[in-house]
């Protein structure tokens, strides 16, 4: 599997990263270098192997369904680039 300029453009869009047109080709080459190296995983026999998603073989802990946090609006907003009257201000979402 090899990545071309259009794939990089598409992936960059999915990752929400603006990539200038002249960077697409060099990035494709870099990603292909990495992916070619990764291809060696195809040599491994993984027939019947369960994928490993976590190194801890624990069940997820449960806790009582009670409110343990909250009422910290000012803390939540403390690092926002733009706020007004206790709200986040974001660019216009709906035209």
């Amino acid at each position: 599997m090899s990545v071309d300029k259009d794939t990089v453009r598409k992936v960059a869009r999915l990752a929400r990263i603006a990539v200038p047109e002249d960077r697409l080709e060099p990035l494709a080459a870099e990603l292909n270098g990495i992916l070619a190296w990764i291809e060696q995983l195809n040599e491994v026999d993984v027939e019947g192997v369960e994928p490993m998603t976590s190194p801890v073989a624990l069940s997820l802990p449960m806790r009582a369904d009670v409110v343990t946090d909250g009422g910290i609006r000012d803390q939540v907003l403390a690092n926002a680039p733009q706020t007004s009257d206790g709200f986040f201000i974001v660019p216009k979402v709906v035209e």
């Binding site: 794939t7 999915l14 990263i17 995983l41 192997v49």
Partner: peptide, 27 residues
């Protein structure tokens, strides 16, 4: 670079070939 790789290996059509296989190799 890593975010692009990560997004690519998780994207539709490549998930099984890359991500799922890597998780099996990890096992």
């Amino acid at each position: 670079r890593r975010l692009l790789i990560g997004t690519y290996v998780l994207s539709a059509g490549y998930y099984d070939a890359y991500y799922l296989r890597a998780q099996k190799v990890r096992a």
